[in-house]
């Protein structure tokens, strides 16, 4: 049983978020709330980010995480929340590159 918990813990975004918070770090959570087309991660997928830029989990196949982290770090300072949208039709997409051709909406919030 111990081993199974360990296995789960490897991907356990909320567990890491909680541990970081308990260690006194600023933490933000990003959640995929909508997808169109061939999005890499299903709705509900989460990414936790701490103030040092450490991350656990994923909201895409690595395409937009960089941009999400930037937003997350600035939300941590304000304690706010925000909805981000990424897709190929976006000009932004050329920068952050959703190569799969899908579109996603991501809700990012600071943990207060």
């Amino acid at each position: 049983m111990t081993q199974n918990l360990d296995m789960a813990a490897k991907d356990d975004v909320l567990l890491f978020a909680l541990e970081w918070r308990e260690a006194g770090k600023q933490v933000a959570l990003a959640t995929v709330i909508q997808t169109w087309g061939s999005a890499p991660r299903p709705i509900g997928s989460q990414l936790a980010i701490d103030a040092d830029g450490n991350m656990v989990g994923s909201v895409s196949g690595g395409c937009v995480e960089g941009a999400v982290i930037q937003e997350a770090l600035s939300l941590m300072t304000t304690g706010d929340h925000k909805i981000l949208e990424f897709g190929v039709s976006d000009d932004d997409a050329w920068e952050v590159g959703l190569a799969c051709g899908g579109k996603i909406r991501i809700y990012v919030e600071a943990l207060n």
Partner: peptide
């Protein structure tokens, strides 16, 4: 989300 909600959520999952 606040810390208490996160704790409750994690407890419920466990």
């Amino acid at each position: 989300m606040n810390f208490d909600h996160l704790k409750e959520l994690q407890q419920a999952r466990l």
